[in-house]
Design a protein around this nucleic acid. Structure first.
Ligand SMILES: Nc1ncnc2c1ncn2[C@H]1C[C@H](O)[C@@H](COP(=O)(O)OP(=O)(O)OP(=O)(O)O)O1
Ligand SMILES: [Mg+2]
Ligand SMILES: [Mg+2]
Ligand SMILES: [Mg+2]
Length: 366
DNA sequence: ATACATACC
DNA sequence: TACTGGTATGTAT
């Protein structure tokens, strides 16, 4: 691809530029900022369920799975680098005190059913992605909600969790304070706008804005399951998904529905976050990886150049699979013998790989 | 149509 | 000692 790049002519660049402008204006016409999309995702899902059901685990680094493979870890364990898809015995080396508890899929499935009941109240057509997350279109809910009486926006604390006692001296906004009415970000506590009930804070009132509606949904999830969720609010699913990660755990983030805000948000995002195809080394559109374009802005400013490579992707074959029954790890070992790896690296980075030794491989492949 | 490669939870 | 399994999508042949 570097060789091809050297032979690009002015004429080719001009043609590419024209293509880009056509595509861009077509796409701009179809930009839709009218929907309010929410992506909700439970925090450290399997691990959180296990911690809820075994309070001894609360303050310990823990993970769910086995010595062979972990499905996820709690946030405490993540500080040590313990992650999903990591073998338990390796995780133990990173974090010797790690507690590993086995999976209980039935429990995760039933919690999933509980949260889906709540999702359906906001969007009956919600799209589940996995047991712990879903996309919701809040547009219609919000249109109705705007004229809802306060009673319909009031929710009870479950007996297991009353709100924290608040300082009397702390000035309160008064009745039904509406939080985040127009603030772009927040990871505020869910329990700071309780009504000043004479009998004592057993309910919570939520406003009519998107932020309030989403905060309400997360509040209901927490009261019902004793588990927390995070959420992203944006004009489309991709952006909502990226937003839901931003204030995780137990937070939410809204990206405003205007072109400028979206452009600004996208600018410095790692490409990896939005369009993984571009960094798949074997994908036919894989023009980003070889040329080290890491951020979206980089792709955008060099788009004219990128377009020339859209159809010029490369592939390499990793060899034939010999034993369909073996584990993923075994397969990897079979297909990537050191000598195969060496020749592959030499092929892929000619100039770098002349003096390549086997010890270098590990680093390169990582 | 099928095998294969890769992504994501 | 130990390196997943379920589901979806895209590519090459
Ligand atoms: N690689 C994997 N293999 C098997 N199960 C997985 C894997 N990754 C995730 N899971 C399971 C366990 C997770 O708790 C659940 C939800 O995934 P995900 O939302 O990505 O992470 P998480 O909920 O554990 O943490 P968080 O969302 O807070 O980052 O799916
Ligand atoms: Mg997630
Ligand atoms: Mg999650
Ligand atoms: Mg998830």
């Amino acid at each position: 691809m570097m060789l091809q790049k050297a032979h690009i002519t002015e004429q080719q660049l001009k043609t590419a530029q024209a293509q880009v402008e056509m595509t861009a204006s077509e796409l701009e016409k179809s930009r839709d900022l009218s929907r309010v999309i929410v992506h909700v995702d439970m925090d450290a899902f399997y691990a959180a369920v296990e911690m809820r059901d075994c309070p001894d685990l609360k303050d310990k680094p823990m993970a769910v799975g086995s010595m062979s493979m972990l499905s996820t870890s709690n946030y405490h364990a993540r500080k040590y680098g313990v992650r999903a898809a990591m073998p338990g015995f390796i995780a133990k080396k990173l974090c010797p005190h790690l507690v590993i508890v086995p999976c209980n899929f039935d429990k995760y499935k039933s919690v999933s059913n509980e949260i889906r009941e709540i999702f359906a109240d906001y969007d009956p057509q919600f799209q589940p992605v996995s047991l712990d997350e879903a996309y919701l279109d809040f547009t219609e809910h919000l249109e109705l909600r705007i004229s809802w009486p306060e009673a319909s926006r009031t929710h009870r604390y479950s007996s297991w969790k009353q709100p924290e006692h608040q300082q009397e001296s702390e000035a309160k906004e008064g009745f039904s304070p509406v939080l985040f009415e127009d603030s772009p970000s927040s990871s505020q506590s869910l329990s700071n706008s309780q009504t000043a009930d004479a009998t004592g804070k057993t309910t919570e009132v939520f406003g009519t804005s998107v932020e309030e509606a989403v905060r309400e949904m997360r509040f209901r999830i927490e009261q019902k399951t004793m588990l927390t969720a995070s959420a992203g609010i944006a004009p489309n699913m991709m952006l909502a998904k990226v937003c839901s990660d931003k204030n995780k755990p137990n937070g939410q983030y809204r990206l405003a529905s205007n072109r400028e805000a979206v452009m600004d948000f996208i600018q410095n995002l790692p490409v990896r976050k939005v369009y993984c195809i571009l960094v798949q080394k074997n994908h036919k559109w894989s023009s980003v990886h070889p040329f080290k374009m890491r951020t979206c802005n980089c792709v955008a400013t060099r788009f004219r150049f990128s377009v020339l490579f859209l159809c010029a992707g490369f592939r390499h074959r990793e060899g034939e699979r010999k034993d369909a029954e073996c584990s993923r790890h075994q397969t990897f070992k079979e297909l990537n013998r050191p000598d195969e790896q060496l020749s592959l690296c030499r092929e892929l980075c000619e100039d770098l790989a002349q003096d390549l030794k086997k010890e270098d491989l590990k680093v390169l492949l990582v």
